[in-house]
Structures are given as C-alpha cells and as structure tokens.
Design a binder for these strands. Structure first.
Lengths: 225, 225
DNA sequence: GTTCGACTCATACGTTTGTTTGAAGCATAC
DNA sequence: GTATGCTTCAAACAAACGTATGAGTCGAAC
C-alpha cells in the first residue's frame, strides 16, 4: 500500500483554504450582514488562520465582492441562457415566461449549491447594506441583465412606455429581494400558514403576481387619479 | 424685563439633547445602516457629548429601537386612522383604497418630518439589517397592522383564500420597502428616466401595481402550472 | 540534499468600537 | 446660602476590529 488514496475529501485540494473561507463568509454574511461579520468569526467557522483572509484576498472588502460575485455570476448567466432560449424559439414572447426566466435562477440557486446553504438571503442583503461599494458593483453586474430583460418584457407587453415598465421592474425586484431576504416575515404575518421554504410555490406566485402588476402599470390609461 | 422670553428655540427645552441625538441618529442610520454608524459619528453630528447617548438611552441597541419607534408609531397610527375612515363609510371596501391607506402614510412621512430628512430609507433598512432584535420588535409593531389590513383586503377582494393573500401582502411589502430603501437603483435601471423622488407618482403606481397583483394571486384558479 | 515558491501559523500593531467614571455645571427647593 | 436632582463634560476603559509581520511547514524541482 504505497499510496493509500485517502478518498476522503481534499480531492485535488486546489487551495482548499480559499474555498473554506468563501463558504464560511457566505454563510455568516447571509446571517449577520457584511459589516456585522468579523474576519475572526469567518476564520473560526472555516477553521483557518486569521491571516489567510488577507493572504488569499487582499482585504475584507475584496472578500465581500468575491463572495457576491461567486453567487451572482452563475445566476445571471443562467438568466441570460433562459432568455436566449425563449428568444430563439421564434415565437412571440410571453410575459410570464420572461419573468420565469428572470426569477427562476435565483430559486434554483438553492439546489445548485449542492449541500450549502442559505445564500438567497445573501443577495437580499446586498441591496440594502450600507455599502457605497455596492452601488459601484451592482451596475456592472446587472446592467446587461436589466437591458436584456426590460427589452424582452417590453416586447412581450407590446411596446409599452419604457419608464412605466422600469417602475414595474423595480417593484418586482423588491418583491423578489424581500422574499429572499425576509422570508421569516411571511411566516409571521401569515401565522405560519404560508411556507417561505416552498420555493416552487413561491416562484409560481411571484410570476403570476408580477405579470399582473406589470400589465396594470403599463396599460394605456389616463394618469389623472 | 424680568424674564426675556427668548423666543429663539428651546421653547420648553424638554431634554433638547435627547432629540438632537435622535435626529442625528436617524439621519446617519438611514445613510450608513445601524451597525456601520458609530456613536461618535452621531454625537458629533448632534454636537453633543459622547456619554449623553448612554445617559439618555442605555445602549446603542436601545437607541436604534427608539429611533425606529419614533418613526414607525405615527405612520402605523396614520394607517389605522385612514382604514377606520374607510370602514366607517358603510360602503363596501375598494382594494385600491385599502392599499392607499396602507402605503400613503409612509410617503407622507416625508412631509410630516417638516424639515428633516430621508427616513423612508431608515425603515427600508430595518427589514434587512443583521438584527435579531428586529425580529423581536417588528411583530409587536406590526401585528395589529397586518391583522387589520389583511382582513380589509380580504373583504375588498371578496373572501379569498387567506394564505394566498398573505403571499401577496409579502410581495407588496417588498415592493414598498425596496422602493424606499433603494430608490437609487430605479434611477440606474431606468437610465434616469424614472424619478424616485416623485412620491405622488410612486404611490399611484404602487397602488395600481399591487392591486392588480393581488387580484391575480387570489383569483380562483387551478394551482397546477 | 538543497533551493524555491506557495502556503499556514502565532503574534502583534494601531484604531475604533460601546460603555463607564467622577467631577463640574446649573437650575430649583429649602 | 446651602443642599438636591438632573444633566453635561473630558477622559479613560476593556474589548474587538482589520491588517501586517516574520518565522515555520510542506512538496516539488533541480
């Protein structure tokens, strides 16, 4: 037995420490927010030396960005894939399908994360946390998404006023973010009857709700109350 | 002139320091969040001694609660007033009117604050900030609101399934919170065309959007996709 | 066997955090 | 005037923060 393979973990161990830090940071950030989570908490949970954070990432801020991008990038890629798929069908776009393409990847992230964890909350936090850095990065990460999907929605709705559509998208993003970030509030106001862990049901409802709201908002109608 | 009235400020001066702290804290919390704002920043902006915070309030956490409650209480009171007004009319409730009663006080808060400030953002933060304390307090502050308004909405919609209505309320709260907390994102995705400072327009759109979404969600329809 | 690069480690640095202390101010009541 | 209660003040506290340092470990290259 010259080289007992040691099947247990650390398969290729490509900087296993770096990933452990990212995983722990993601978990803690989603629970306590970015500012309230210390590097010591992260390195303790990751069972890694404190200095490893500043070695692999240069600063805490860079760590935050790395954690976010690791989750946002594949979700947005998935969104664009689904939209491409819809648009290549040759048939006219259906609003519900476009919205599904926009929302579904976020919910799928649960399953894509294999074992871990509760990162939808992480993305929810990203919207409202103190950060000035957030407003520097989100545009970059979401500019393409916003442009592609707003165009698709406009097409599905039949060439409506773009400004009204933007208001609707903003409301829709709010519903989505609030659901992912504060699902426990749903449990509370419903007295436990509505289950925020029911992702399939949530996605279905969010699509129906949003589609109807968008149609109402972009309907040709007098502005006067 | 035995008692020159000194019309200038500090009318009854009932602990003027306490209010200065609350005002400064409210302002800074809304801009940088609760955890990222230090007591020294607050006392500096309020031009008050550092120790005054722990004298008038016992801790930073109590300060946060005091700041929140000072804003939430009158808003919720206003909400209930408007709802009472609707229900005492004797006529059947209209969904749009109920939603207006729910949303309007938040937007009015701008004007009610006389001179100050941007506190809608403050409330927006409260939803997603780290706090475990938040989940201890919000139920207390919003239990009555949730009960009264969900009943009114159910009445306006004609006795629909309560669980579905709760999902809708949750989405609605998300739209509202996201708008108040992250209005700048609207400016971004719309390329500057939609103005988040247009509160009248925003309220109108939010009511229309939400009413339509709620109706779609609570419509009797097969659950199967 | 030595050298070299990548990585981990214990430890310390300088700040900043929330909170506490004890003296000083300053009205009102006796 | 002296005493009393509430408030403000400068200064200090221990603790926790993000970051930096230099020695030490390990494996592959030569």
């Amino acid at each position: 037995m010259s080289r007992t393979p040691d099947l247990i973990d650390e398969a290729h161990s490509q900087s296993q420490t770096k990933d452990r830090i990212l995983d722990a940071a993601e978990h803690l950030f989603s629970q306590h927010g970015f500012v309230a989570t210390s590097l010591r908490q992260i390195t303790t949970e990751a069972r890694v030396n404190l200095a490893a954070v500043n070695y692999h990432f240069q600063s805490k801020e860079s760590l935050i960005l790395a954690v976010l991008m690791r989750k946002i990038a594949p979700i947005n890629r998935h969104r664009l894939e689904l939209l491409d798929q819809l648009e290549s069908g040759g048939q006219p776009l259906v609003l519900e399908e476009v919205l599904h393409a926009f929302f579904a990847p976020l919910f799928d992230a649960r399953r894509a994360g294999v074992s871990i964890s509760n990162f939808p909350k992480l993305l929810g936090r990203a919207y409202t946390e103190p950060g000035d850095w957030m407003q520097r990065v989100f545009p970059e990460a979401f500019a393409q998404i916003a442009a592609r999907f707003s165009a698709a929605m406009r097409s599905a709705l039949g060439g409506v006023d773009m400004t009204e559509l933007m208001w609707g998208m903003h409301f829709a993003i709010g519903s989505m973010a609030h659901f992912t970030a504060a699902g426990s509030l749903l449990t509370f106001i419903s007295g436990g009857k509505a289950d925020p862990e029911d992702f399939d049901g949530a996605l279905d409802r969010l699509v129906r709700y949003t589609a109807s709201g968008l149609r109402a908002l972009t309907m040709k109608k007098e502005v006067a109350r």
